[in-house]
Design a protein around this nucleic acid. Sequence first.
DNA 1: ATCGTAGGAGTACAGTGTACTCTTACAAGA
DNA 2: TCTTGTAAGAGTACACTGTACTCCTACGAT
Lengths: 206, 206
Amino acid sequence: MPRSRSLSLNDIATAALQVIDGEGLAALSMRSTAAILGIGTMSLYRYVVDRDALERLVVDHVLAAVDTDATSREPWDQKLARQAECVRLAVGAHPAIVPLLVRHRHTSQGVKRFAEAFLRTLAEGGFNGQHRAIALRTLVSYLSGALQAQHLGPLDGPGTEAMATLPPDEYPLLAATAQAAQDISPDEEFRRGLGIVLRGLAHEPR
Amino acid sequence: MPRSRSLSLNDIATAALQVIDGEGLAALSMRSTAAILGIGTMSLYRYVVDRDALERLVVDHVLAAVDTDATSREPWDQKLARQAECVRLAVGAHPAIVPLLVRHRHTSQGVKRFAEAFLRTLAEGGFNGQHRAIALRTLVSYLSGALQAQHLGPLDGPGTEAMATLPPDEYPLLAATAQAAQDISPDEEFRRGLGIVLRGLAHEPR
DNA sequence: ATCGTAGGAGTACAGTGTACTCTTACAAGA
DNA sequence: TCTTGTAAGAGTACACTGTACTCCTACGAT
């Protein structure tokens, strides 16, 4: 009976993402998002009940890009690797959302979608019951930790480069290791770390 | 020449931690911390330049509890497991700080301390150069991800219990797996996840 | 043409971090 | 013992946040 909505949830998520990508996650606010949409601040509350809901919208919008239909015939571990890369790729397009991803991973539709996909592949690999549960959590924990290390790591503080110049008498190994790590690209670091986890899974009872 | 400080950095960290433990991380503010210390809000800035610095103080204070002298004669993987448990224990005493831990892991003294300890053990295990770097990062990524999953996971949303009651037609595996996961204690989950990573490391070239 | 419903705008308030400006306490030098 | 320089600490003020609450207004069904 009343007037129809002029904005879609997708519009809103896109606007919020525009703020985040352009001015950083800290700049995300109800006001800044509403401004981009060309509506009043409070009008935004007609679409989302909360700031939290707005953030959830952003997370799901980004995660919508992960491809979850894995119908290929690869071995399970290769398939898992590809699926994880897929998540990394989607998140890598908007690195600043990583903290949001972490905060809303239990309430996000997108997270559930790719968790289900992971589980499907684990099931193919013969994982069942508790073993499958542990495998998923371990995988997700690594994924989440690695994404953070990579994307929000360099932000606060100079990151690895600074570690390489630490006082070697106090942190001898840390300094040396950071030096060695400088030649490793983020891609390679992620892939090899994931490889370690997957190799661990391969030797796991199931 | 001038008057001497009436508060130590330890006092400040303790006060902030008291706020966090008592009223949650969200309640941490310059005002609330200063109130506990019995000083004016701005007086706090005589001790810390920033809110960030205050948070760093808290992180280091909590991480000071991790025991880093691992002079035992266990095999390297068992020692790593014990060291990781040590971190988990220290953080577990103040679960609400996990987000702070993540945000400041590059600038925190405490993080560097136990990273160095990890590296020492990895070196004992024969890891060198890039292999050691990758091993450390993978370990830390898992550790960070797992701590978050455990401590701030249940906070937003009902967590795993809710997942177990998901629509099984939409997320069949997720629902089933969540059900299986309910019998796993956080302790066991962490230990087994860590075991997977360590087993992966054991099969890694070095 | 009318009316009810919901969309959108505006104001206001409590809370945040912190810049800036005081006043005040104190240890060293005379 | 008195003076003085310096830093400790208090207070005010401002820009910013999320959002409760109230108003006006556009529009689809009758």
